[in-house]
Amino acid sequence: MPAPTAFMAFSSALTGFSLVELFGTGVADTYYDALVHILSQATVDELLAAYEPGGEAGLPRLLAHPLYGPLARNVIKLWYTGSWEQLPPAVVLRLPVAPVDNVPRVISAETYLEGLMWKAIGAHPMGGKPLGYGVWAEAPAGHTH
């Protein structure tokens, strides 16, 4: 399913990466599908609906919410690592999440390679997208000596 605009805006605000960067990963739809699969369409819609009115300015409040907070943090980690992290028991109790879906796992080889954390730290995923021979000898990007 194509990731809806609301999900992308939400993701951008959560991750600190622009829409262009998020689309550039090529796995936005994969994440949206994974979320819908794990949490159900209704829960994802509810989460996005909780975000929309406040937008970015409302994020601190949303992240403090007992249900939406943990879900939003899992969305961040999904984008950053390409993996699903197990939701805490208190959250699972309130949601129709199947235990088999809530196991920690890498969504796919592609999402592993597209994890935003690698970009954030000025590196590349371990085992993929190598920078080339000897680049490790150079000063890190943005470094002023």
């Binding site: 959560l14 991750t15 992240l63 950053y80 992290e85 954030a120 730290i121 000025g122 590196a123």
Partner: peptide
């Protein structure tokens, strides 16, 4: 960097541009 993401997101409640910058700073 997985643990650093967890620490910043779950432990320190960071998100958005602040998370991105902070992650870069501690990993570097």
């Amino acid at each position: 960097p997985y643990s650093s993401v967890d620490q910043l997101v779950d432990g320190e409640g960071r998100y958005g541009a602040d998370l991105r910058q902070r992650l870069n700073a501690i990993i570097q």
